[in-house]
Structures are given as structure tokens and as C-alpha cells.
């Protein structure tokens, strides 16, 4: 008996049909298929199992698999919706959908809140904000005095923590972003609109019409 390896059987665990993902995200079917090309590349960079491991995400973001980064850790945790230690294709597409230029702003605001709520308490706390500032300074090899960093964090809290309870809740965050819309600029990746140009190989193999 022969063994026929069909295209379907080669799909990794967690693979979801592009038509399903396109219906639930701002992406078209073609764009989801192009994202699959990107996903395949990322998910085979260290362990070729069709799943993105944390080291693979770090490698893609920083060209270094061993360099721990606060942002990469948070992104990984938020993308890993099932919390099983890997990012599956469906999780990858749904999460990236939030970064699409056409995604609802409310989704971007909520995602940024969860990103900055480092310990997932439902609040952005003073020490979390300071930790993020320290992380970005470390990232950029910038040195600022602790006093200066705390002044910046204090000032930000005095503007954003309108209830004055020492922590920023989602409601305060939404209000703060509405006054400072540039804060969610990093929640939009214009590149996602051109994803089919970046990964054109799918055009030859695409099975579904948009």
C-alpha cells in the first residue's frame, strides 16, 4: 500500500483554514495564505515542528535566540492564547489581526493594555511601568538616573491615573489613549497591508479564491 502525503496531512497542529481565519480577522484569504508563508519560516527557524516557540520569536525579533526581552516575552504570552507554550498558526493570525491597519481601535487599545499589564492583574501598576521604562533603556543602551526615570513614571501616573489609586485600570487607559492617540501607534503594522507582496509564493499554490 502506497503512502500518499497529501497537502492537508502536512499541516502542523493548530493549523486552521485560511477561509475561517479570514472571516474572523481583517485579513483576506490571500493575506492569510501569505501569513502562512511567514509562519512556516518563523516556526521552522530552530525546531521544525510548525509551531512558533519562544526562542523562535526572539530570534525573529532580535536576531538572537538567547537574548531575553520583556516585550518579546509579553508578546509571546499574549499570542499563545491556549497557554501551551507555543504559538499555533490560528493564534498567530488572530493576534496579528489586531495589528492590521483596519482592525478596530478598541482592540488595539485593549491589547496594548494587556501587553503593559505585565503581571496580568487587570491594572498597569507603577512598578510595572518603571520596569518597562528600564527595559527599553537597557534595550537602547541609554542610561538615565533612577530619579529621572521615577519622575517620568510619576508624571505619567499623575496624568493617567485619574482615580488616584496608584494603578491604571482599563477605563483610565482608554481615556489616556484617547488624549494621546500616538500611544497605540505601535499597535499598527502598515506592513500587514502589503503582506501578499512580501510573501508572493502563495500565489502559485493558493487553493481558495478571495
Amino acid at each position: 500500500m502506497g503512502c500518499v502525503l497529501t497537502k492537508k496531512s502536512r499541516r502542523p497542529p493548530g493549523y486552521e483554514e485560511p477561509t475561517v481565519l479570514a472571516a474572523e480577522t481583517p485579513f483576506t484569504v490571500s493575506e492569510v495564505e501569505a501569513l502562512y508563508e511567514l509562519f512556516k519560516k518563523l516556526s521552522s527557524s530552530i525546531i521544525d515542528d510548525g509551531l512558533i516557540h519562544k526562542e523562535e520569536l526572539q530570534l525573529a525579533l532580535f536576531r538572537n535566540r538567547n537574548r531575553r526581552n520583556l516585550f518579546a516575552d509579553r508578546i509571546f504570552d499574549l499570542f499563545d492564547v491556549k497557554r501551551n507554550g507555543v504559538i499555533e498558526f490560528g493564534e498567530f493570525v488572530r493576534s496579528l489581526g489586531i495589528f492590521h491597519p483596519n482592525a478596530p481601535v478598541e482592540d488595539k487599545i485593549a491589547f496594548a493594555f494587556r501587553l503593559y499589564d505585565l503581571r496580568q492583574t487587570g491594572f498597569i501598576e507603577w512598578d510595572e511601568l518603571k520596569e518597562m521604562v528600564l527595559a527599553l533603556l537597557h534595550e537602547s543602551d541609554l542610561v538615565l538616573s533612577d530619579d529621572f526615570i521615577e519622575t517620568i513614571v510619576n508624571k505619567t501616573f499623575s496624568d493617567a491615573d485619574t482615580k488616584g489609586d496608584g494603578k491604571i485600570d482599563l477605563e483610565e487607559w482608554k481615556e489616556f489613549v484617547s488624549k494621546n492617540p500616538s500611544l497605540i501607534k505601535n499597535m499598527t503594522l502598515p506592513y500587514l497591508k502589503d503582506i501578499t507582496l512580501a510573501f508572493p509564493s502563495f500565489v502559485i499554490s493558493t487553493e481558495v479564491e478571495d
Binding site: A60, L61, L136, E139, K155, N180, L183, I195
Partner: peptide
């Protein structure tokens, strides 16, 4: 000297806090 810098603004602008590198070839 008043500080007008916003900590979230700093974070959101930081290169290391961006997903853009995912798309670099």
C-alpha cells in the same frame, strides 16, 4: 524643570517594542 515626557510614549516608540522585525527578510 518640568518633565513633559510620557513613559508610555517612550515605550511605544522604542524599537525593541515593535513587531516590525518579524517581517524582515
Amino acid at each position: 524643570k518640568p518633565v513633559s515626557m510620557n513613559a508610555f510614549e517612550l515605550i511605544s516608540r522604542a524599537q525593541g517594542f515593535s513587531l516590525e522585525n518579524l517581517f524582515e527578510k
